[in-house]
């Protein structure tokens, strides 16, 4: 279960700098939960950020800022950590790592999947980011992954099973970065359903999977 497909360094840099929108960050963070190697890169990039902060020429702060801070540290505070409920970890080996599991409210067995046609299922994932769409896909073993038309970047993170396309085979933890220039026809591997997180920068418009299946897949 070695991960062989990692997010590009640019994506990690944007995640570290805080400029990556929530939905993309969800895919990156979930990959990080499974990938010590990329976590190390993230640590390095954070150290670079720390050096940049240290190196900046300081801008004087208001005279009363320190007192306000001390007052605030003395005030009672409610721990306003997150509004999202913490998901029950469903058993000792959940398929969905954090932070993804909390976004869905539980592990794969507890989800109310929606049918997508021909055995495929999907589940939209609510985030605070309206410009992108995240969903969980479950593709029956051996079937094509429903691809779709979109104008830009697409991240696919495999959580269970595997899929293959012209660019390689993707198993648990592998992250595929694709854009419209890649004409890939992913297909779930035999043996096990493929569950993956798919993030796109536009609302997903799946072509009717039924229509796709009876037509040649080229050019849709």
């Amino acid at each position: 279960m070695t991960i062989s497909h990692h997010p590009g360094e640019e994506l990690l840099l944007d995640y570290v700098a805080g400029s990556l929108a929530e939905t993309w960050s969800l895919a990156v963070a979930t990959h990080l939960a499974l990938c010590p190697m990329c976590r190390r890169t993230v640590s390095e990039l954070e150290a670079v950020g720390g050096e940049l902060v240290s190196a900046v020429a300081p801008v004087p702060v208001e005279d009363d800022l320190y007192d306000s801070i001390v007052a605030a540290t003395n005030a009672a505070h409610e721990d306003s950590v997150s509004s999202r409920p913490v998901a029950d970890s469903s058993g000792p080996n959940p398929i969905l790592p954090e932070p993804l599991r909390s976004y869905l409210g539980g592990d794969v067995d507890s989800l109310e999947w929606r049918r997508l046609g021909l055995g495929a299922h999907q589940l939209p994932i609510p985030t605070g980011d309206e410009l992108t769409t995240a969903r969980l896909l479950r593709i029956p073993a051996g079937r094509p992954v429903p691809t779709h038309s979109h104008g830009g970047l697409e991240l696919t993170l495999v959580l269970s099973g595997a899929f293959s396309d012209s660019t390689g085979t993707y198993g648990r933890g592998d992250l595929q970065e694709a854009d419209e220039s890649i004409d890939h026809q992913p297909q779930a591997a035999l043996g096990e359903d493929c569950i993956c997180l798919a993030v796109t920068d536009a609302p997903l418009r799946f072509k009717s999977l039924g229509a796709r299946m009876v037509q040649p897949l080229i050019g849709i």
Binding site: E22, S25, A29, T30, L32, P99, D129
Partner: peptide, 8 residues
């Protein structure tokens, strides 16, 4: 005002 997803 948005979340920053992080591994746990």
């Amino acid at each position: 005002k948005s979340n920053r997803p992080e591994p746990d």
